[in-house]
Write a protein that binds this DNA or RNA. Structure first.
Length: 323
DNA sequence: GAACCGTGGCG
DNA sequence: TCGCCAAGGTT
């Protein structure tokens, strides 16, 4: 722990009913570690706006930091504000998103920009309640924006926080499956014990960072952990349940087919024919049609009057022929 | 609560 | 190799 934080006496604790003790996470230890171990991520730099932080949170949903870095930098340079984003077409947004995954996130980000530009004078709201009403923003993202963009002392519960609390506080290898009910309880417990000072927001960031870089899911680096107290270690690192949920396959799923179809549309500036889409998934026409129908339904693809296909809002004129 | 929604890297 | 996992949200 650094000298700067040595006098911080507050602790973050959650009553452990099962084991009849109240383990806690020492804020001073955690913050002292964060002072030296914090990653130098571009969306944490001075001068980054709340909107740009919001963009990073959209991109980081279910997506590793390393893959977000280059996309985010190009994105915020091109569209630095909500109104600039809203002025782009969905097609442009989907191309910039590229293969970051879950293209619905890109579409929701565009919708979110539109609402903020139109209804909030181009200013990202700073309170959780309002943020949660925006497209693509749920409990986590709302709290992350309030905390990281506006330094509000609100708990942020993500997969990292769930895992750190499960281990250090409850002595379990893994967190229970995410649930709105449990998360609400966690938020309540966190809020009651969150540091009240300006350090509160930083504490939330540090807790997430610990889960992301030290208390990781697969091979935790316990030797590098700053926490002196850990219920999981005290119990001898008991393994998690061997009964895992069914593996989330990808190969052969509708999601893969959707990905292939969107790939074709992203790569073609001109409208594509049905035949050009068909070759992207030739083996199973039934699945291909189902995937295409769902993309149309999601507003991620548009069918033109001549039965060719484009990304939504894409210029449908053949630029090679003024004819 | 469960299912669904992309993609790629790592152990 | 291949299952697991990554700063979730919506239906």
């Amino acid at each position: 722990m650094s000298a700067f934080h040595a006098d911080i006496g507050f602790e973050f604790g959650i009553p452990d009913i099962v084991h009849g003790r109240a383990m806690s996470i020492h804020a001073g230890e955690l913050l002292g570690w964060f002072d030296v171990a914090e990653r130098d991520l571009p969306w944490r730099a001075d001068g980054v706006t709340p909107w740009q932080i919001l963009v990073s949170e959209f991109m980081l949903q279910q997506t590793p930091v390393a893959r977000v870095l280059p996309i985010w930098s190009d994105w915020v340079a091109r569209w630095p504000t909500p109104s600039a984003t809203a002025a782009a077409t969905p097609a442009e947004v989907l191309r910039a998103w590229g293969k970051l995954g879950y293209p619905r996130r890109a579409k929701r980000l565009h919708e979110c920009a539109t609402v903020i530009a139109r209804d909030f004078a181009d200013v990202v709201p700073d309170d959780v309640e309002t943020l949660e009403q925006l497209p693509g923003i749920g409990s986590y993202t709302a709290r992350a924006v309030a905390c990281f963009a506006y330094r509000k002392p609100v708990p942020v519960v993500d997969t990292n926080v769930r895992r750190v609390v499960a281990r250090a506080v409850h002595g379990l290898a893994d967190a229970a499956a995410p649930s709105a009910k449990r998360d609400h309880a966690d938020v309540g417990a966190l809020l009651a014990l969150l540091p009240k000072a300006a350090q509160a927001a930083r504490f939330s960031a540090a807790l997430m960072e610990l889960g992301a870089t030290v208390c990781t899911a697969r091979t935790p680096r316990c030797a590098a952990c700053p926490l002196r107290a850990c219920a999981w270690r005290d119990r001898g690192f008991p393994p998690g349940s061997t009964v895992r949920r069914p593996a989330q396959r990808y190969a052969g799923t509708d999601r893969q087919v959707r990905g292939r179809l969107l790939d074709v549309l992203r790569d073609n500036v001109l409208p594509v024919t049905k035949a050009e889409l068909d070759v992207a998934w030739p083996v199973d026409p039934v699945q291909r049609e189902r995937a295409l129908a769902s993309l149309l339904d999601d507003g991620l693809v548009e069918r033109l009057a001549d039965d060719r296909f484009v990304l939504p809002g894409q210029d449908r004129n053949d630029s090679t022929a003024s004819r």
